[in-house]
Design a protein around this nucleic acid. Sequence first.
DNA 1: GAACAATAATTGCATTTGCAAATATCGGTC
DNA 2: GACCGATATTTGCAAATGCAATTATTGTTC
Lengths: 174, 174
Amino acid sequence: MEDCKSCTKPGSKTLYRLTNSFPYLLNRVGVQMGELFSRRIAGYGVTLPMYRVMAALWETGDQRLGDLAAMTTIEISTLSRLVGEMKRRGLVTRARLKDNGRTVAINLTPKGRTLVEELIPIAIHFEEVAVRDFASKNISDLKTILAEIYESLKSLEPEIEEANKARKAAKSKA
Amino acid sequence: MEDCKSCTKPGSKTLYRLTNSFPYLLNRVGVQMGELFSRRIAGYGVTLPMYRVMAALWETGDQRLGDLAAMTTIEISTLSRLVGEMKRRGLVTRARLKDNGRTVAINLTPKGRTLVEELIPIAIHFEEVAVRDFASKNISDLKTILAEIYESLKSLEPEIEEANKARKAAKSKA
DNA sequence: GAACAATAATTGCATTTGCAAATATCGGTC
DNA sequence: GACCGATATTTGCAAATGCAATTATTGTTC
């Protein structure tokens, strides 16, 4: 077998193709799914972040802004402005709580609810197309796998902080 | 079984949880992977888009800007500016071709090559952590599945254009 | 009940990105 | 060899985003 000039370290055989690594692939596929879905729903006047907010509200009922930020993993300052825009479009309500004026409650309007329900068939269709070819392949539940991967990724967070701290320390010494 | 108030249409049982749909999950997992990886490599002075560019160059050698845009699916105007920044940081070279002054050739510098090779173990580690629990589960090749899903997604593109066109037409009539 | 810490949301600001328009170069045609 | 369409890249501009600072409200302590 011939060495691959680009993918080797000196003296070794082909090692690893970064663009075929699992992290790279998973990221690309996930981002691409988001972009396609985004384009598909654009005609409904909804962006992907708006869709995510509506989906969360649809499933859980009204939420405080901070909780909504946690559920959707949308940064709270971004979400604050996004909800403002969604309110302007009549998709959600936003109101300070009477018993605690610090917090703001967000809820779907009937219009928002109707809209998100219109989008369900699209999600189902995308799901169908994406995993169509695995129905026959005994991949029992790819969704479960993804959910588990999402959990696994959490164990990387402390590692990342530590690694960055270590690198910073090493650098400041140099 | 009790109805789920949030997840039903009137009169029906629990239908579908958008946040547990395959498109939603795949997107979230993929984006999260990217964010974590991005944070992990930040200490090396590299952003995720820069990493993607370096990975592509590392595997294929020098490229014209347009080809690099196609390979990485980074919009060419974004890539143009990104490469400018990477050149300033000494990671890549950028030079107009002598035989065709329209095109620009991008290449890794030794510094860029060294840097991307430093990041390989991180990618391997992330891969390890993410799929650790499936080694025992007879999921022979999750990467292949993802690559196939990426291909499946392509079939959505013409649909999307058509659906948007149809919606536009319906709206202008109304 | 005034002062101060804690919690929740918003705003300011700089960066990144995508689309569209502008620029630069090439290849062919008369 | 000047003109024109095609190709390749860059630039202008507006929108989205994250972090940090600010504002608003509540709870606690003396």
